[in-house]
Every structure is written in structure tokens, then in C-alpha cells.
Amino acid sequence: MYNVLEAENLSKSYLNKRALQGANLTIQQGKILGLLGPNGSGKTTFLKIAAGILHPSSGKLLIDGQKPGVYTKSIVSYLPDTEYLFKWMKIKDAVQYFKDFYSDFDEKKSFALLEFMKLDANSSVKSLSKGMKEKLKLTLVLSRKAKLYILDEPLGGVDPTAREKILDAIINNFSENSSMIITTHLVNDIERIFDEVAFISDGEIVLQGNAEELRSNKNKSIDELYREVFQ
């Protein structure tokens, strides 16, 4: 099993702030990793670097052995924590957009997912609620046969029913040939799907390990461990 993502001493500094300070992290093929930490800990910064939309100040990050760039963008499916779809789009336009740009996009799967999420392909993107937009974004991202999925707060701002739906979609559509990084504050809701977890604080990975081993070694759930680390 090889490492889909390898980060070594990854740092990112802004004018007066260090968002990442020598973060080290690896993700093996077929694993789902939960990247957990409080606000401002560097989670999104790390994901943005992996997605190729932020550039590190120092250190190294490789995806499938390559630095983030055109190639890695073709194998990484990234769900940002922003409303990035064009407002003029209907859902079917957004599907077509992904089909046009990503050779690994599976249109059939996308329509099956839209049905599962109870989204009408003819609805306008701007008419969707926050939860529905999140479902649409997840549909688009999961409809790709990517090597690495990066999901930044996929449960942010959605109600508990929608959360269950989103989690089911993630579990049902995850392939053993892929890997996934998920960040969330709702650890309790999502911890059951993690194979690995990494706790990030002040831009550093303070704890990383197999989720099951951490649970049994510490005799605590990941949610309890999270609260203990970041209390």
C-alpha cells in the first residue's frame, strides 16, 4: 500500500501569522483520515495546499509522488468550505461543468447521487438552501473517480438528517483504491468512518494514528479524545 499524500515539514506563513509550522502527515491508499482541530489550527490551510490553491512557504507536499499542480488537480477531488459554483448555473449545468473538465467524472453516478440527495437537476444553484448546496457540492465531488478526496467541513451548517444523508453518500461512494481527508468539528457524527485521525493544533500535527488503536489504547472515543486534546 503506498502513500497517496506525503507532507514533510510543511509550513505556511502569512505576514504576521504562521498557519502551518512543520506539519508532517501521510495518507495511505484506501484510508479515510480525519484531520481534526479547532478553528484556526491550520486544517483548511493544509487542505488548500493539497488542493493546489495555496502554496507552502517551506517544506514538501507530494500527491501521488507529484507536487501540487495540473496533474494532481486531475486526481484530487476537493470540496471547499465555500459556495464556489456559478450563480447562473442550474444543477445540471454544474454536472456538465464537472463532466467537461474532469475526465474521471462519472455522469451516471452523479445523477444517481442527485436522486439519492433528492436534488432536482433543473433547480437553480442560487435557489438552493445551504444544506442543499452542500449536498450538491458533495455529489459533484464524489462523482469523480479520484485518487484523493479532500472534504473541508462537509457537514458544516447542515441539519442532522442531511448529515446522515451526506455520511451515507460518503461511505457508499468511497472506493478502496482512493483515499480521503475530512475535516470537521462534528467529530461525534463522523468518527465512525475514520480509519486514521490526525489532531492539528497551531499548525502542527500533535497526534496521528489509527482510529481503532487510539480508541482502544486510550479507552476513549475519538470525540472524547478530541475534547481532551483541545480542552
Partner: peptide, 12 residues
């Protein structure tokens, strides 16, 4: 935010 759509595309 539209930048997230453009700059995550595999385009040079």
C-alpha cells in the same frame, strides 16, 4: 469564491 472552481481545475 469562484476562484476555487477555476484554480482547482486541471488547467495550466
Amino acid at each position: 469564491d469562484q476562484g476555487y472552481l477555476l484554480f482547482t481545475l486541471p488547467q495550466s
